[in-house]
Structure formats: structure tokens, C-alpha cells
Design a protein around this nucleic acid. Structure first.
Lengths: 247, 247
DNA sequence: CGTCCCCTTGAATGAAGTCAATACGCGTGG
DNA sequence: CCACGCGTATTGACTTCATTCAAGGGGACG
């Protein structure tokens, strides 16, 4: 198995000690569950009892309106946590579902409490993660509100690609891309048909190669330019900035 | 002056002790600054040095794309905090600006650290606030991604109204509404012209009365229905749920 | 070899945007 | 007190981007 994705992810922000890493490895080994594509990890209205950590596969946060319209609000990639709110809020105001086959570690509350007390560096890295997630959510608002179809889809591809790299799921210019055009449509607020046409436009412009669940971005800088993508909101400029003094 | 809005706001979630309230009153009295409409409280790229607490007036978080397109990502109302990220992230990835005349208390870091240590109840209430803000941001994604113009504007009006009530800025069926149609357009991702037409549609349907910076919603339930508004994401069902056992 | 899901394509429709002119409201200063 | 000016709101005519509807194609899997 690949290196624990949450470790790779948090180490973007800080350098973890051996004890921190051991703790996270232990966490990732408890209560592993699998979900099939389309299954819900947790549904709107439910009260989560543990924190879910994605180990492999892609999931999403989504809401479904009464009349069936469906919006994906966030993609959950390996190393992502869901339901951090269980400590404070009561019921889920949205659902989390599996887009691909998914492996999830379900961390009991106590393990989390323990972590907060004994591993302040992890705690701070989780804060960083939460703030970055909020920033991503804001950027989605801009993306859907202001950008046209081409920019919107391009922007999303850039974001996913940049998020996949640090967790070891993307090479210099390509990655697995296991979701459907319907998923992209639900995430961008476009129709499936128009996402299809937009992808073709991106292909014909030479900005992407997307075939059979595999995405290549020959010139990331060009795609970023075409999509008005500015990675500042992912706050990746932090390595070694915090907590490094002490080991 | 009106009761400290942050106290009213946090007391939606928990009951604060006298000491907690005194602390928040002290905080709101330090370093008060005023901003004129259109001024930035803090701009994208800057590194905030203190936490801004809105005492009166309406502000917004926004991003401006290179080509001038502008998206408002959140409204900041009295009692709201900006820049909670200063402890972790480096630079602002968006701007916060004043939509009306604005009074802001600038809380130094130390005061915050002090609060975290000595007032756990406030700390937890601030966690709640942060999680609710994240939920609002997610709902905006749904709003802009899936709803049509009428639902979008209606939904936003519902949200603002429901947020204004607990801080004492709305009566049973009306509130001051000091922002322009251009602001509504920037928040909903619609054009000004279309917002104008949509407001008229809402008016003709008898769902709102909006004139001269004053909004009346004769039948909130009806507006909610028309806008597919479900208040669950504001997590207002918490009064007395937490930390109440101890005084 | 059939079925299901996903992708693709074309044609018609529609919601919202753009452009441009006009009207209103309010504060300032003559 | 009225005229001017500026920002905001309103209206109409036209355009456009994206949706909808509908049909066909391709690949994986039982």
C-alpha cells in the first residue's frame, strides 16, 4: 500500500515527528470500511459517530434538492477527512458519497481527542486543512458564479490535479481521473451535455488529454491561464513555516 | 449602543457566563475603526495582523478576477469575525470590504490567545461559528450552481433575514437592507439587470416588499418555499445543547 | 451477445446577459 | 429653494451561452 495519504497531505504544511506519523498510521488502520460507487458514507440528516478518513478512491460532498437537482460541493480525495463537525454540530446538513470504490478509516472520537491533546502538531495541521477547505469552498463560489463553462471545467481540473500531486496521485503532467462527466456536471453546475462539449473544446485547444479515466495536462501553466486559475487559495506556500523549530 | 452583536450571536449556540460576556464586551471596545462604503478592511495578498470583529454595518468577502469580474462570496454582518485564519495561513486569498459604513473592532492576537485559554465556552462557540460559516459557503455553492434566478435571490434574502434576526437587526417580518442591486448581483452570480427583474418578479408575487433600503417579507414561509430554502445548514437548533451543564 | 452505463452529436429552446437609454432619488452647492 | 450631478434603479430590444430533448455509438461485463 501507498504511504498514508494523510501524512503526505499534512506534511505539505508542517513536518511531522515520527510519533505524529505513527499516530496517523495507527489511525488509518482502525475500522477500515469499503464503499461501492454511488453509496453514501453518510447522508444528510444523520448524526455522525466517528470521523471518516479517506484512504483511497474519490468521494464527494453533495446536496440534493427536493426536485432532484444535485450539486457536488466538494471532492474528497485520499487523505481528506469528513465530518470534523461531529464534535460541535448535530446533524449533517449534506451527504458524503463515494464516486469510485472507496476505502475509509472510521476514527472514533476518543482517538481524535487523544490526538488533539498529545499531538499538537497534527492538531494545527488539521486546522490548516480545515481553513484550506474553506478557501476551496469560497473559490468554488467564484468558479460557478463568474466563470464560463470552459474556465469552470478547466479550473476544476487544475484544482484536482494540484491537490492530487502532493498525495502522490499525480505525476508531473498526468493522473488517474476516475469520475464521470455527470460528476463534473454536478460539480460545476453545468449540464452533462455541455460538460461534454466543453471537454472537447479543451481537448481541441490542446489543453487536456482525457481518455478512459486518465487525464494528461501537457501544459499546466497554459490550462491555468485559460481557466484564470490562481493556486494561492490552496495555501501551499507553507512548508516549514510552522512548528518546525521544535522536533 | 445596541447589545454587543457577537454576544447575541454566540448565545444562539450556547449560554455564556457573565465573565464570558464581559470578555467579549472588552474585546468589542478595543481598537474600534470605521470604514466607508467601498473601502477594503483587508485586501487579497495582505497578511492580517489582527482579527476584525464587525460591530455595525454590512461587509463582504469578495474576489476580483483579473478581467474585472467580481464575486461576493459571503456577507459579513454585525457579530461576524474576519480573518480567523491569521493564526495559521499566511496571506489573505480574498478581500474583505465594506458595503455600507462599517464599525469594526480590531482584536489583537494576544487577546484571542487569552480567550482560547480562559474562555473555553467562547472558543467552542467560535468553532461553531466557523463550522456554520463553512456550511453557508457550501449552501452558496448549491445556490449558484443549481437554482434559477428567482430561487437564488429569494434564497439569499431568506438567509440574510434569518441571520439578522438573532442579532436584533430584524423584526418579525422586516429588516433594514442597506445593499445595492449590484451587490446582490455580485453575490448571486447574476447580472444587475437580471437581479432587478428578479426582484420585481418577487415583488409581483407578493413575496417581498423592498424599497429604499428596507425589506419586508410578509410571508417568510412562502418565500422559503419558493426559494427551496431549508434553514438546517444554519444549525440554529442548538440552544442549550452544549456546555450548559456548567455555569 | 445483450444490456447497462457512459459518452457523443444535432437541433430546437430558453434563461440570463449585454447594450443602451431613461428615470429616480438624494445630497451639494449656487 | 431649486438646479445640477452622480449613483442606483428600471425598461426595452437583441444576443448568447447553456439547457433540453432526442437519438445514436462504444465499451465493459455478465
Amino acid at each position: 500500500m501507498m504511504a498514508n495519504p494523510i501524512i503526505r497531505k499534512l506534511e505539505q504544511f508542517t513536518h511531522l515527528s515520527a510519533a505524529d506519523r505513527a499516530m496517523l498510521d495507527r489511525a488509518a488502520a482502525t475500522q477500515v470500511r469499503k464503499f461501492a460507487p454511488g453509496e453514501d458514507i453518510i447522508a444528510e440528516g444523520e448524526e455522525p459517530r466517528e470521523v471518516n478518513l479517506i484512504l483511497s478512491g474519490w468521494g464527494c460532498r453533495y446536496k440534493q434538492l427536493e426536485d432532484g437537482r444535485r450539486q457536488i460541493m466538494a471532492f474528497s480525495l485520499p487523505g481528506d477527512l469528513c465530518d470534523l463537525n461531529i464534535f460541535i454540530l448535530r446533524a449533517m446538513d449534506h451527504s458524503v458519497g463515494a464516486l469510485t470504490g472507496l476505502t475509509v478509516a472510521q476514527l472514533p472520537r476518543e482517538l481524535f481527542d487523544d490526538m488533539t491533546i498529545r499531538h499538537p502538531r497534527i492538531t494545527q495541521a488539521l486546522w490548516w486543512e480545515a481553513l484550506v477547505n474553506a478557501a476551496i469552498q469560497r473559490e468554488w463560489t467564484v468558479n460557478i458564479g463568474q466563470r464560463n463553462a470552459l474556465e469552470r471545467v478547466g479550473h476544476l481540473l487544475c484544482e484536482l490535479f494540484v491537490r492530487l500531486q502532493p498525495i502522490g496521485l499525480a505525476s508531473a503532467d498526468s493522473c488517474e481521473f476516475p469520475i464521470t462527466q455527470a460528476d463534473l456536471a454536478a460539480a460545476t453546475g453545468l449540464s452533462v451535455v455541455h460538460v461534454n462539449r466543453t471537454l472537447q473544446e479543451l481537448r481541441h485547444a490542446g489543453l487536456i488529454v482525457l481518455r478512459g479515466k486518465h487525464l494528461t495536462i501537457p501544459d499546466l501553466a497554459a490550462l491555468m491561464r485559460a481557466s484564470l486559475f490562481n493556486p494561492n487559495y490552496l495555501h501551499l506556500d507553507h512548508i516549514g513555516r510552522h512548528l518546525d523549530a521544535v522536533e
